[in-house]
Amino acid sequence: MNPLVELNNITYKAQNKTILDIPEFQICAGEFLGIMGPNGAGKSTLLKVLAFLENQSSGAILYRGEVIPKGNVPLELRRKFSIALQQSLLLDGTVFHNIAIGLTLRKMPKTVIKEKVAHWLELFGISHLAKKNALYLSGGEAQRVNLARAMIIEPEILFLDEPFSALDFPTKIKLMEDFKGIIETARTTAVFVSHDLMEINYLTNRLAIIVNGEVKQSGPTPRVLEHPNSSTASFLNEWKKFYPLAR
């Protein structure tokens, strides 16, 4: 497996507090990587560092084996990734406009944008919302727009921070199925933060558990879930009480 993005002795500090301390970590091409951990563990921060959105305090980040100069990430590289942040931060404008924005910024022709947006609206079942102001959407609707906005770019790596948290159960199942299909067809590499073992179990093929800013365990999802190590057992076993794993 050749790593797409590689972290080397990364630390991330904010206000003199170390939030991330990661000696080594990789995202490999084609994988669907899950990240789990308690609140405040540093998952969202890790996602932003991996997507070159936040600068690490020390250490190096490599893309396809090449060190990317800190604070000077080429635009073309940034544009290979897309990220749906934990909060759906939508712009004051129509849903159409919000979903189109990644393509608009990349100066795609208008006709192409129209076609693609229509396609993704359809896929997420929100075609009827196209002309609505995105600020007036419900939490679940906003989350779909947030997801569609990230996926329409067809990124090399898709970063998702708890993208299904506000969806009702049937919608979540439906969307997850569709989502899995889309990702597998497009062979998109994806990194996925979630608190939901069901989502993790269904979607990801590798899982990293992060606690207190450190990656405590990582490996194939079923193996991590079945054999937590001494530092992840307490976190994972709580979950397993409620989710007997049948996989």
Binding site: K48, A51, L53, E54, L75, R78, R79, F81, S82, I83, L85, L89, I101, G102, L105, R106, R149, I153
Partner: peptide, 9 residues
């Protein structure tokens, strides 16, 4: 950050 993440200069 979100706007930057969408690929904006």
């Amino acid at each position: 950050l979100q706007i930057k993440a969408l690929g904006a200069t």
